[in-house]
Amino acid sequence: MSTTATAIDNKKGLWRGGVSPFKASYGKLMMWFFLLSDAFTFSTLLVTYAFIRWSAPAYKGEASDFVFSTEYWPIPEKVYEAFPGFHGVELPLVFVGLMTFILIMSSVTMVLAVEAGHRMDRKSVVKWMLWTIIGGIAFLGCQAWEWTHFINGTEAGTIGDVVKNGLWINNYEIHGANLTFNQYGPPAFAALFFFITGFHGFHVFSGVVINVIIFFNSATGMYERRGHYEMIEKVGLYWHFVDLVWVFVFTFFYLI
């Protein structure tokens, strides 16, 4: 490529070829377009969530009088108020705050890894990649705990009408949540929780796997021999995107 390009060197130009479109490398550009399409996918999930939620009965009473019912949409901070080791203590949104902190921190360590890669500093890249992986695994662990708590529910439970084995059962005591019914609210509430946080969690999981791969590649000096650490940048884009999606999930699912 370079030999033919140098022969007609002065023909380089935006519309003549020889330069990268958008002055970005192929890999980075394709990562951007993949992330754009992935953002569309997440948008459909958020649209679905918002649409179902806004057309469902809302709870308009006092927040202090709130009890779970299958008849109306729950107040999020009443659902997510558990923290590991603090059984029975109401700590609304504290755990999800910790998860947000972990994910933003792992995004920061990823930027530091990219920055170290620009300086060809292999040791720093390896160090920051390791922190990023630890952050990702910590987030997944938190999510596993949150899911377990969500599925098992609270001792109090909720009385509601459910369909079980094809029959309507009135005044059934519901504990926890599954895809058919849940103690927190309408069935769609738990289904959307599983689907949206699950889809995001799967992205985090894939991100951790890819991070481990590039961690080993940079530790063994593959990118040093290659002469650049662009792979860290590309995976970094994906990792920040996962953080970005979490920012939106956090707002729409836990705050609003």
Binding site: V47, F51, A56, P57, E62, Y72
Partner: peptide
């Protein structure tokens, strides 16, 4: 799209179904 689907479509479907909010009283 999100804003219009939430605010316009969601509210319209809610109104068409005649869904009542839970007032707490």
């Amino acid at each position: 799209l999100i804003v219009s689907l939430v605010n316009i479509e969601g509210a319209a479907i809610k109104g068409a179904r005649g869904t009542q909010d839970f007032t707490g009283s």
